[in-house]
Amino acid sequence: MRTEAIDPPGVAWLRVSPRYVTVRVAGWALGNVVAVAVLSVPLLLVLNGVWSWPPLWAAAALPAAALLVALWRLVLIPRQVRAIGYAEREDDLLIRRGIFFQRVLVVPYGRMQYVDIGAGPVERGLGLCTLKLHTASAGTGAEIPGLPAGEGARLREQLSARGEARLAGL
């Protein structure tokens, strides 16, 4: 399928750090290893003769399918990370993400209520951080993951300064 970006034309996107792939892979591993392990339990039980049902092929197919989906998602991660981008325009911040399910978000600086910077253990180890913008709407969900710590701090200061300058009420 031809992938046409839904971004507004003429925007110079800043990309997040490629190291963020590692963070995503770590998260992926944590989730999927557990999932596949749990789904393999019937297979083990059937192999050891503890369970007589389901048939062997069904018991094997379940973790195999899960593994396949997991691997597919693993393959996608680098592309997904490359698809994350943000751009500071004069009056608003643009955040995009996704390939299959694309989303371009526009947050006016004057609408920002506060800015969060957080870092999980893996992110911290890699010197990355996640920036979160909060507006008066819970639906905004503006998040830029995988920023180098220095860039995150710069962006936060920048956003705060711009938000202050353009502050509007609700």
Binding site: Q102, V104, V106, V107
Partner: peptide
């Protein structure tokens, strides 16, 4: 407050997108 343009794979087939206002 903010706005977002969203598009899934099927919508892309038809070159349409959803606009969400927050």
């Amino acid at each position: 407050q903010s706005l977002a343009l969203q598009q899934g794979p099927i919508a892309r087939r038809f070159r349409v997108a959803d606009l969400v206002l927050h």
